[in-house]
């Protein structure tokens, strides 16, 4: 498992619940070290151990933890770089949705060894969309729900999101766009210096 995923979970837990919670998670998961490195590779079982430990420590369902992780990835100032990279996907929320299928290829341009979950997008018409996600982590669809919710906020779009279980193609996320310019959203400049 690429360290980027593990590091993302670590930063989410640390930034949201504090360093003490993260330390408790490392102990419960029996990591034997205090933190992940973004640029190293780890055994996938460690990711599962950390997620299980976090769910226990926080006394919250694993799915909820994953969804909050997705929201954190887009909305927390410490990971602003990721929000910016996602905003390059398009000028509107719908453009952004369409760009999601390109996301794994885009990510590989920067980090050739990075395997993002495969995303398959379908426009069902009249503002209804469906996204299938297939990744290494069970429940990746919940991360996607949290992430899309935060991105919709970012674009100022009003959406209904739902994790509709799994089928043979992977986990299914449904997206109903109620209003594509509900609020003004956050500004996005192409230059990082301007935000």
């Amino acid at each position: 498992m690429h360290g980027l995923f593990n590091r993302a979970i670590q930063c989410f837990l640390r930034d949201t619940y504090g360093p003490a919670l993260w330390l408790a998670v490392t102990r419960r998961a029996q990591l034997g070290f205090e933190g992940f490195e973004t640029m190293l590779t780890y055994d996938p079982s460690l990711t599962e151990a950390v997620l299980a430990a976090a769910a226990t420590e926080l006394n919250r369902p694993r799915d909820t933890v994953l969804e909050d992780l997705g929201t954190y990835l887009v909305s927390h100032p410490n990971v602003e770089a990721l929000r910016r990279l996602l905003r390059f996907g398009g000028a509107s929320f719908v453009d952004f949705l369409y760009s999601l299928e390109d996301l794994p290829d885009r990510a590989r341009l920067a980090l050739p060894e990075l395997e993002l979950p495969a995303l398959e997008f379908a426009d069902l018409g009249e503002g209804h969309f469906r996204l299938r996600c297939r990744g290494h982590v069970r429940g990746i669809g919940h991360v996607v729900v949290g992430l899309l919710r935060a991105m919709a906020d970012d674009y100022g779009a009003l959406v209904l999101l739902d994790h509709a279980g799994s089928d043979s193609g992977g986990e299914v996320v449904t997206i109903d766009l109620l209003d594509h310019s509900h609020a003004s959203g956050r500004r996005f400049h192409l230059s990082a210096d301007l935000g």
Binding site: E37, T38, M39, L40, A81, R84, L85, F88, R106, A107, L109, A110, L111, L190, S191, A192
Partner: peptide, 17 residues
């Protein structure tokens, strides 16, 4: 521009590592 930004994010991580 996306690539420039992605590369510099990666470089920042490598530098801190």
């Amino acid at each position: 521009l996306y690539l420039v930004e992605a590369k510099s994010a990666v470089m920042d991580e490598l530098r801190s590592l």
